[in-house]
Write a protein that binds this DNA or RNA. Structure first.
Lengths: 236, 236
DNA sequence: AGCGCCGAAATTGTATACGATCTTTTGCAC
DNA sequence: GTGCAAAAGATCGTATACAATTTCGGCGCT
């Protein structure tokens, strides 16, 4: 039950099948099974999920709104290829909002939430020690889930959705510009942040968060890739 | 050229006709020509703009993603009717991000930008003194444009889009829960914020911004409206 | 040989058609 | 007269069909 065309769980909140396709593609992008720049033709997507082009199109347009795919008029949809400038904006936005989310989350956090976060951390750590693509992908997802869970705890659905977008796009940026083979997030830093929240040291938690984001960003090599589609693209 | 079915300007960035419809409807919502809860059937929208249901649907789904309309499965799309809790979340989000945007904007602001902002303020003040629905609507838009322009100056396209969503949804909230007949924003407060930025008193500018948002929020009466669709709805 | 023009193939943009689901109304029984 | 049930109507969900645009290969011209 790990194939692309599964995900048949009839989530009641899902308004339509397009949501499922959207989620499946987003997951594939976030987990870096789909590389930036990959063309996502409506027909191909439709065939892949055994639905009509209509639904495929709807899913792609939704993803376009999230900034995960870029649709060019009469040319098609592609997995987003964030420019270095966009990458900077994404992390700038994260620096701007994550401390605020952290503060709100800390104000409403319950012991259960903390337990949940630690659970996530444990899982993340376990995946880090494992080998293989599958574990690596799960780790990427778990790493983002930490930030997402924090947003969920904040109780603000709007900020939560915004963070979902930022985390997803961050994954794209890291896929494009990340240098170290290590995953997206320093694992220990997550734990430090939880600890700081737990003892109500808000300012320190925010500092740690900013450090954490800076740490991720420092691993990037934000230089213009000359689109490399001339001939190098075929030498892999 | 103020009819609903105009907006024929072939913006090159517009990927399709659905964008135009989306923008037209959004404008109508923000300017409060469309009241919260109004049903937006796909057929009606399509007929209104002389396009097929396909495009109407695409536009409505895009607006759904922005939180301006809510689509209920197999029931249709409605102009969003934010709950008091959603309203609080919207303003909570604004309190969270607007100071940050302000700081970034202040760091990059040019004399030209300041002139532009003052121009906006002038226009806003002129509209305030005018009478009539048209002026009132233009004033609402101008009032939001101040915050949007600030976001644009910050140079972060992501935060700019986010602010667009927040401002638009704020307009809905004010339409629903606003008490004073006065428009959405205290006009003078905008001017104070610009002045504070101009003299590089960032902390004071942020304080003013927070005050400004609190001021808007204080004008709201965030109590559950019992959907009022029983009989009171016909007594107006 | 190189450059530019033209037509076929592919892909997206939009419309229409059909099926599913929900709402409303109507009619019957109690 | 009230209440429930079934059918009619309306609206959405999805698929298919057609039109417009782009892309790419080939042909002719310089």
């Amino acid at each position: 039950m790990k194939s692309a065309a599964k995900a048949q769980q009839a989530d009641d909140s899902a308004e339509t099948g397009a949501q499922q396709i959207r989620d499946a593609i987003r997951e594939a992008i976030v987990e870096r099974r789909l590389s930036p720049g990959t063309k996502l033709s409506e027909s191909d997507v439709g065939n892949l999920f055994n639905v009509s082009r209509t639904l495929a199109r709807a899913a792609l347009q939704a993803l376009s709104y999230e900034g995960l795919v870029s649709v060019e008029k009469n040319r098609g949809a592609f997995v987003a290829y964030p420019s270095p400038d966009e990458a900077r904006q994404i992390f700038s936005a994260r620096r701007l909002v994550e401390p605020g989310i952290l503060r709100e989350a800390a104000a409403r956090i319950t012991p259960g939430d903390i337990a949940h976060l630690r659970q996530l951390l444990l899982e993340e750590g376990r995946l880090m020690s494992e080998r293989g693509q599958t574990a690596r992908r799960a780790e990427i997802k778990a790493s983002g889930d930490f930030h997402l869970t924090l947003a969920a705890i904040s109780g603000n659905a709007i900020m939560q959705r915004f963070m979902e977008e930022l985390v997803a796009r961050s994954s794209l940026v890291i896929a494009l510009y990340g240098q170290s083979t290590a995953s997206s997030c320093g694992h220990s830093e997550h734990g430090d942040i939880i600890s700081a929240i737990e003892v109500k040291e808000l300012d320190r938690a925010c500092q740690l968060m900013l450090h954490h984001i800076a740490h991720i960003e420092a691993d990037l090599d934000l230089r213009e890739r000359k689109s490399l589609g001339l001939k190098e693209a075929f030498e892999l």
